[in-house]
Design a binder for these strands. Structure first.
Length: 469
RNA sequence: GGCGGUGUGGCCAAGUGGUCUAAGGCGAAGGUCUGCAAAACCUUUAUUCGUCGGUUCAAAUCCGACCGCCGCCUCCA
């Protein structure tokens, strides 16, 4: 398996430090608002990586932090005349709700900055003791010139950055590139006691601290949006490696932006949709399918038209899975044997995913598989049970478990509500009677009226099936 | 100014030296099945990969120039 590593700018063989364990850290949200669907791309694609690693037999330890204290949260709290805790809890909970709706597997831990203040203070103290950081009347900064490898992730050079000179001049810093580890509290701001006085942690330090605390000195994978490469991840490397004297991260993974009309979706441009709003109009699976159709590192132009197209494509996958399940449950098997090479499709799927999580290719394999399955079903009179077992296994392990493009629980709820099921079956029976009497007007009326309330009937030689939309 | 990404059919998108007259999805056209639908299947839908040159027996794929779009360098997934 190969992963493109931002640090080396190459695809590299994936060799975890301590197999079968894989440690993975993903930069989570700052909880000051609902997250937008562009942020959602990072969460979903990280989830795909995690799920595929599990498919490969790795035991993934997955940590995602929640930044629950920072300028934006303070500003929001002031605007609403409340405190930062209320804001961060509100949006932290909303975040957990939304990622759950997006069918993202839970992290092992969602550590919060404010719950790790002591560890943060400890790391800052260590950085000061070792000469990497300095305190200027209550503000502590990291001295980038002290850290040799500064710029190695983003490919930037310190002197060139200085020449760029778009950095705010701050008299307290010895170098404009130095970044805050500890921010002195201003009047009315929330604060924690520290050796440098009342204040709060800077943004970058929390990831270094929590990554170390929950996953160790060197972790396998650290992922996040491309906009975090500089300065956030660069700074994390500097802090962590300065203190730990160990390589911080083995594989850096960065996700491309979600664009709207070719522009990066962002809060500041105002061109965003919250994941929440999108989920009200489209299924989580369609959102996932849309994201999977583009490689994770490239840009993805987002539009509702594309989402609708994905919703259609998803139907094809879902219909096939439902059909296979129904045939298995009804035991309507024959004894015809399929020549279909299931092993080939499994291999193709794995080759695609092994190649830096090439989900567009993996999807092509799945769609190809589905076409073959349906083709077999429509060409042969009755296939044997083995065929359906293998087809079911394949789609469950790939489309359902790795890509989460279908939720088996939902299918069950749809068909297992006994009363509802019996009612619909009664109507179906009556309609078949009408059909047999060539009373097509009545038959069509039953079908149309059921459709109006969201129940779609589909006729086949053996009878009618239904699905709830 | 520095660094990076990207340009493939109507739309989205994979492919980075020969298997490419280019995967897959959406859309469109025709057909099979059906009382009609829906679903599904079959067939068709790029001799061409931003433009112009070059390297090579061979290029969407390598090199050069040019054009277009986007991003990072400031908080940002």
């Amino acid at each position: 398996m190969q992963i493109f590593n931002t640090l080396t700018k190459k695809k590299e063989d994936f060799v975890p430090i301590n197999p079968p364990e894989v440690t993975m850290y993903v930069c989570g949200p700052t909880v000051y608002d609902f997250f937008h669907i562009g942020n959602g791309r990072t969460f979903i694609m990280s989830d795909i990586i995690r799920r595929y690693l599990e498919y490969k037999g790795y035991k993934v330890k997955y940590v995602m932090n929640l930044t629950d204290i920072d300028d934006k949260i303070i500003r929001k709290a002031n605007e609403e005349h409340t405190d930062t805790k209320e804001i961060s809890e509100r949006y932290g909970n909303a975040f957990l709700e939304d990622i759950s709706k997006l069918k993202i597997k839970k992290a092992d831990v969602y550590p919060k900055a404010t719950e790790n203040i002591n560890d943060i203070i400890k790391m800052i103290s260590d950085l000061i003791d070792e000469g990497y950081a300095y305190n200027v009347s209550g503000n502590v900064f990291f001295n980038v010139n002290k850290f040799n490898g500064y710029g190695k992730l983003s490919g930037k050079k310190i002197d060139e950055l200085e020449a760029g000179a778009r950095i705010e001049i701050n008299d307290e810093k010895t170098n404009p590139l130095d970044f805050s580890l500890w921010k002195k509290a201003k009047e009315g701001e929330p604060f924690w006691e520290s050796p440098w006085g009342k204040g709060r942690p800077g943004w970058h330090i929390e990831c270094s601290v929590m990554s170390l605390k929950y996953l160790g000195k060197t972790i396998d994978i650290h992922a996040g949006g491309s906009d975090l490469i500089f300065p956030h991840h660069e700074n994390e490397i500097a802090q962590s490696e300065a203190v730990n004297k160990n390589q911080f991260v083995k594989y850096w993974v960065h996700f491309g932006f979600l664009n709207i009309q070719n522009e990066k979706m962002s809060k500041s441009l105002g061109n965003f949709f919250t994941a929440r709003d999108i989920l009200n109009k489209y299924s989580a699976e369609a959102i996932r399918l849309l994201f999977l159709q583009t490689h994770y590192a490239g840009p993805l132009n987002f539009s509702e038209e594309l989402l609708s197209a994905s919703e259609k494509g998803l139907e094809k996958i879902k219909n096939t899975i439902i059909k296979i399940k129904e045939i298995r449950e009804s035991h309507k098997f024959g004894n015809e044997i399929s020549e279909l090479d299931f092993h080939y499709f499994k291999k193709q799927f794995e080759e695609a995913m092994d190649d830096d999580f090439n989900t567009p290719r993996a999807l092509a394999v799945i769609f190809d598989f589905i076409k073959n399955i349906n083709s077999e079903i429509s060409q042969k009179e009755k296939l044997d049970e083995q065929f359906y077992i293998k087809a079911d296994d394949y789609l469950t392990s790939t489309a359902v478990n790795v890509l989460a493009l279908a939720d088996l629980n939902n299918f069950k709820n749809e068909s297992r509500n006994n009363l509802e099921d019996a009612l619909i079956k009664t109507l179906i029976d009556l309609r078949i009677k009408a059909k047999n009497d060539k009373n097509y007007q009545l038959a069509d009326e039953i079908r149309n009226r059921l459709k109006e309330i969201g129940i779609e009937l589909m006729d086949s030689k053996t009878g009618s099936t239904y699905k709830i939309c």
